[in-house]
Amino acid sequence: MKSDFLKGTADGIPIALGYLSVSFGFGIMAAGAGLSVFEAFMISLTNLTSAGQAQGVSIIASGGTLFEMAVVQFIINIRYALMAISLSQKLDESFTLPKRLLGAYGITDEIFAVCSASKGSLKPKYMYGVILVSTVGWVLGTFLGAAAGEILPSSVTAALGIVLYGMFIAIIIPPSRKEKSVLFVVLTAAALSCICKYFIPTISGGFAVILCALISSLMGAIFFPKKYDKEDENK
């Protein structure tokens, strides 16, 4: 059981590194909007989400209403609901209610990705390990960015921008090699995402991702339905 936690922490390291660079930028932004280091730190600790936090800070800075804050957070972060449903299907039996309440805190794009890709059912301790390391990276980066601003040379922060995407590629390529159905879904999603980006720029990034994912997953499910027992074997 101990090794589940350690395995989770190891798999969380690339997330933490990516988060460090992204949240560093968030910290700089929050400080620029007039928030204290402690406030920026607490936003990152309680929210653990990139786009939602950035938008939240701009609402605070512009003196928006609490209603506006709630609606914007809901729209930007609703994709987590889809991820939570998807993850709920591979939870281990030991994932009791209190553990679900705890684990839900850490459902982000990246943690979801790593937990989905983990072999077998998802164990609480594995998920905690991933969340712990990732969260440390996220709040540490926020703290450094808000407190110290531009200490890293820009060549380093620029190169760190690709870390999370590199990890995503490492997650989607191996199953795409093994199953042509996954390859189909991956290519369809990428194509739709490009169409949104270059031809329908009015769609916000977060919403475009949901739309592309829904359409391509549905197409995958229609054209390549997974056999019941076969899926259990794979997992």
């Binding site: 994709r79 889809l82 299907q89 795409s176 999603a189 739709l192 980006k197 391509s216 549905l218």
Partner: peptide
């Protein structure tokens, strides 16, 4: 079930390309 199986890959692919 098939849909939810494909969701993670679709989400990651859409997030990665072209970003």
């Amino acid at each position: 079930q098939s849909f939810l199986y494909y969701v993670p890959y679709a989400v990651l692919s859409a997030m990665t390309i072209p970003a």
